[in-house]
Amino acid sequence: MGAQGGRRPREGCELFEHGADVGVRGWGPDRARAFARAALALTAVVTDPARVRPLAPVVIHCEAPDDELLLVDWLNALIWHMATLNMLFSRFDVRIEDHRLSATVWGERVDPERHRPAVEPKAATMTELAVRREADGRWVAQCVVDV
């Protein structure tokens, strides 16, 4: 996860507060790294990502008309794979060209005893949705997740 206070590292992620739910935010030197870090924050909504072993790869592709919808599609694709494969992910290799994303993500099957999952993400939403380049050149990708 990211730094608590002080100068932020070049790359990281955090959860932010939203009423009944929770927001995910990732940042990095480019869009792809910011998206990868937002994905790690999504795992952190469920469990400590350090508990998730990157054992099995899954390939994900998405395409959207703009950066923001691409982030929502990316996180929703992860949620769909988490639900249908009963997996959690902890390593994300993301490539983005224009508004097309290809990724290989690594994770393992949910083990309720070991992962102790807190909540199940229902969907990435368009609330507090933003993909932007900050003044210092870092990319930030964030939205609220319905849990």
């Binding site: 008309p65 919808l69 929502v72 599609d73 929703n76 949620i79 769909w80 639900a83 249908t84 229902k122 969907a123 990435a124 368009m126 319905d146």
Partner: peptide, 17 residues
């Protein structure tokens, strides 16, 4: 459950566009 969440996800995107 997951079915309702996915219907919401699918149609929210389609309706927004």
């Amino acid at each position: 459950r997951g079915l309702g969440h996915q219907i919401g996800t699918d149609y929210l995107r389609e309706m927004a566009l």
